[in-house]
Amino acid sequence: MKPGLFSFFNRVGAWVLLLFLVTPALIAIPVSLTPKRFLSMPQGEYSLRHFEKLFTSEEWLSSFFQSGVIAVSCSALATLLGTLCAIGLWRVSSRYSELVRAFLLLPLIIPQIISAMAFYRLWIPLGLLDSYAGLILAHTILAAPMVLITVSASLATFDPKLEQASKNLGASNWTTMRRVILPSIRPGVFAGALFAFILSWDEIVVTLFISKYSVYTLPRRMWNGIRENTDPTVAAAAVILIAITLIAFAVSAVLSRRNARAQAE
């Protein structure tokens, strides 16, 4: 189709929309630099005091630390369980395994408020409310489907004959898994681990239900700051989160480019 007038206007519109998607978040940058004690746009004067507060306040630092611990543990656990499960489903690949796959993807799509209710309901009798274990387990269940998807995508391009060859050459199941399958699906595993980390790092709805005092993650503290709507430290935290997002994005772009190159070879 020739790029007509319609196509041209649509492209301009699409760029406007894309900028509409990204730019609003940037307002956190000027607000975080305000010299005042309340949320405001700086007028001529700038100050880094809110960043200083962010990095010296015990509360914010402990939230960064807690979120980090929870996200790393969740990512490790979800990657382990999700990768194993993806390999299992790929090996079985029958009608039942596809049913199980669809079932295991449900935590991704079921509204978070329902997931939050479910975990809250069960965590009360199990005594897991407001504990690291409770948050890590809940986040792992939400994040494992991500790993399942990325690893399955990698497995789809893996040649099953390689596995057969490895076995024919006398390698055990375990050796085949470690030396043949895992290296070829590494990009999918890494991508899954990254997504799982971000999901947990950013999770708020379930966290609001199952944490209270002793575990206070970063999103939880931001949520509080947003509800109170006074302290500019929230803006500084938002800027840091945007920076982390951009870094994570760059890492994943490099990974996926390497993945594409590996597939092209």
Binding site: P24, L26, A28, P219, V234, A238, F249
Partner: peptide, 10 residues
Amino acid sequence: WISILVRTFA
């Protein structure tokens, strides 16, 4: 990828 909280705050 930008956190939902950051966007809501914005």
